[in-house]
Design a protein around this nucleic acid. Structure first.
Length: 565
RNA sequence: GCGCCAGUAGCUCAGUUGGAUAGAGCAUCGGAUUUCUAAUCCGGCGGUCGAGGGUUCAAGUCCUUCCUGGCGCGCCA
């Protein structure tokens, strides 16, 4: 907590020839609370003072004296260790949380600044599958994390709704679409048409030309082509929305690639005017050789543009429309090179905001025995996974808490939450191997563990049933399990800051696991409700603030915090 | 071939600006409940941190070479 560190720095700065900031940076938290609450390592001083760090630590600890709220100063090896008054620690932490409630953790670091989060961004006319999960969940979490830090956030779903494949689909639809005319079209039907097109195209290569023809019509605004394409888009969006609703994900804008179709020509002209383009093998490129990258292709030899061109146009448009301070692209790491190239082109175009663009990449999702691929039909549909997770939770509820009211809704919150937590729990950069059993295993460090802990706390508060107060005797919260928990609670704001700095939602997951583990240790060792009214009041405050922190943390991840389960 | 990412306990992973004894969960073995939800908690077992070399008082963390796996490398997105 900043409060104590400030006090420690002011004690140390009298005796140490280091800037305040330097001292502050060195202060750390000892691995074992028995050693102290904060520690100052003396290694870096030993060079200038030409003494061993142990000697310096001893001398320093003798030279400075305790002042409230620092209770004790002790040299242990090369460290000066500080013990704070537990009462003050508890009071500051718990009062802050119970005053700020749902706002605990909110900061104003981003006040007045705008962040764009470009995430999920699936291709239309295809199902959302489990490998689409990561971008959606990581992006959603980052959106919430930045919002908590006071940024104005704009969540954009950059739909893949443009390209030659829509020419193919139109051809297939016109030729064989009647077969499904007896019912409302679904994404499955579109998928079937897509597969059928590729089967037929092998026999009849003329189909590819027809498809190119239709895409050209689409590009030039042909009414029939546009109507059919719009129909595909409507069908897809309707299905996507159903999944986003299940996941509790909201976008501020669904703006697909098609939207930039009218702008790309101007964009290309602007790039050309900068004199950074050249023609190579009939294509228009930006040579990135000086930056040790392959060239960025802007226009194919048939004069049509590529996705890099559309990305540049989109970036220009977004800067103009939203005047963002940061733009975050949550896209798989297989596109790392693409983003490096495209950011470099923005820089070469002279946009000083180019370095405000960030590619937040993540490892890909694979099956145990190979890659996922829509072409081979080797995918697990996202909806199937979510439904299965909810079903599985329902069985567990039936077994453990059959009298629970509102089982459906709670199973939904817990099942979906389990999937969200499992996906966000590992660091972004790691590849994830999808395994049904693993994805649906809810024991140990999982979403249900966190939600269950939350539900138990709610249960205690219900049973207590009286108004709570932060006006308690903080001296009663003194056991080891209690103090560790309180210290954990106080770390929440800095964990959010760190998660934002590294674009790493997994830090929130790890933190919540920590808090819950501390809580459960406390829960097992001490009774909250007892005949001792003062002690009960104090522990109730601890229970309520812990509940609040868990709830706020889950919200950052896009998860619900059910009060019973 | 070149570039990027990953490699830590049997399995899945923490360990971010180099610091005190490398930590969790799962699995396995043993224990805790007259109790606020046992979807919990405690203990045992389990490690040449992929390998070698280097920098440093100090390296899982930084540099370097190599090994393994994944991804990417001009007209797909």
């Amino acid at each position: 907590m900043d409060h104590f560190i400030k006090n420690i720095v002011s004690l140390l700065k009298e005796k140490i020839d280091l800037p305040e900031d330097g001292i502050k940076r060195l202060i750390e938290i000892p691995p074992d609370p028995k050693m102290g609450d904060y520690a100052f390592p003396c290694y870096s001083l030993s060079k200038t003072l030409k003494k061993s760090p142990n000697v310096i630590a001893t001398e320093l600890s003798n030279a400075i004296h305790t002042v409230r709220p620092i209770a004790e100063i002790k040299a242990i090896g090369p460290y000066v260790n500080f013990f704070v008054e537990k009462e003050t620690l508890s009071e500051i932490t718990l009062k802050t949380i119970s005053e700020e409630r749902d706002n605990y953790g909110i900061r104003s670091a981003g006040k007045g600044k705008t962040v764009i989060v470009d995430f999920s961004s699936p291709n239309i006319a295809k199902h959302l599958a489990v490998h689409h999960l990561r971008s959606a969940l990581i992006g959603n979490a980052i959106y919430h994390i930045y919002k908590t830090l006071g940024y104005r956030c704009v969540g954009i779903n950059h739909l893949g709704d443009w390209g030659t494949q829509f020419g193919q689909l139109i051809v297939a639809y016109k030729k064989w679409g009647g077969e499904n005319a007896h019912h409302a079209y679904t994404v499955t039907d579109l998928n079937d048409l897509y597969v059928k097109f590729h089967q037929e195209a092998e026999k009849d290569p003329g189909l590819e030309d027809e498809a190119r023809e239709w895409f050209k019509k689409l590009e030039s605004g042909d009414a029939e082509a546009k109507n059919i394409w719009q129909h595909f888009k409507d069908i897809s969006l309707k299905e996507f929305q159903k999944i986003y609703d299940m996941l509790g994900i909201h976008f501020d804008a669904f703006v697909g690639e098609s939207f930039y179709n009218t702008m790309v020509q101007d964009t290309v002209t602007r790039i050309k005017e900068k004199g950074i383009t050249k023609v190579s093998e009939q294509a228009l490129i930006v040579d990135l050789e000086p930056y040790h990258m392959p060239p960025c292709l802007l226009r194919k030899k048939d004069d049509t543009t590529l996705y890099a061109t559309r990305d540049i146009a989109a970036a220009e448009y977004r800067k103009k429309t939203y005047d963002f301070d940061k733009m975050i692209y949550v896209v798989g790491s297989e596109q790392k090179l693409h983003f490096n190239q495209f950011f470099k082109v923005l820089e070469l175009m002279g946009y000083n905001w180019a370095n405000c663009c960030v590619h937040v990449d993540f490892g890909l999702m694979k099956f145990k025995d190979g890659k996922m691929s829509t072409r081979k039909g080797k995918v697990v549909l996202l909806e199937d996974l979510l439904v299965e997770a909810v079903e599985r939770i329902k069985e567990i509820i039936e077994e453990k808490n059959p009298s629970l009211e509102n089982k459906e809704a709670i199973a939904r919150d817990v099942g979906i939450g389990a999937v969200i937590f499992a996906d966000l729990c590992t660091k972004r950069s790691k590849d994830v191997v999808f395994d049904w059993d693993e994805a649906l295993n809810f024991e140990g460090e999982t979403g249900p563990y966190v939600q269950y802990t939350h539900a138990r706390l709610c249960s205690i508060l219900r049973k207590f049933g009286k108004p709570m107060t932060a006006d308690i005797n903080f001296g009663l919260l003194k056991e080891d399990e209690t103090v560790i928990l309180i210290k954990n609670l106080g770390q929440f704001p800095s964990v959010i800051m760190k998660a934002a700095e590294f674009y790493e939602p997994s830090l929130i997951c790890n933190y919540l696991i920590d808090v819950c583990a501390s809580l459960n240790r406390f829960y097992n060792a001490h009774r909250v409700l007892s005949d001792d009214a003062e002690l009960t009041k104090a522990r109730i405050l601890l229970v309520n603030t812990t509940r609040q922190v868990i709830k706020n943390g889950l919200r950052l991840l896009g998860m619900q915090a059910p009060e019973r389960m």
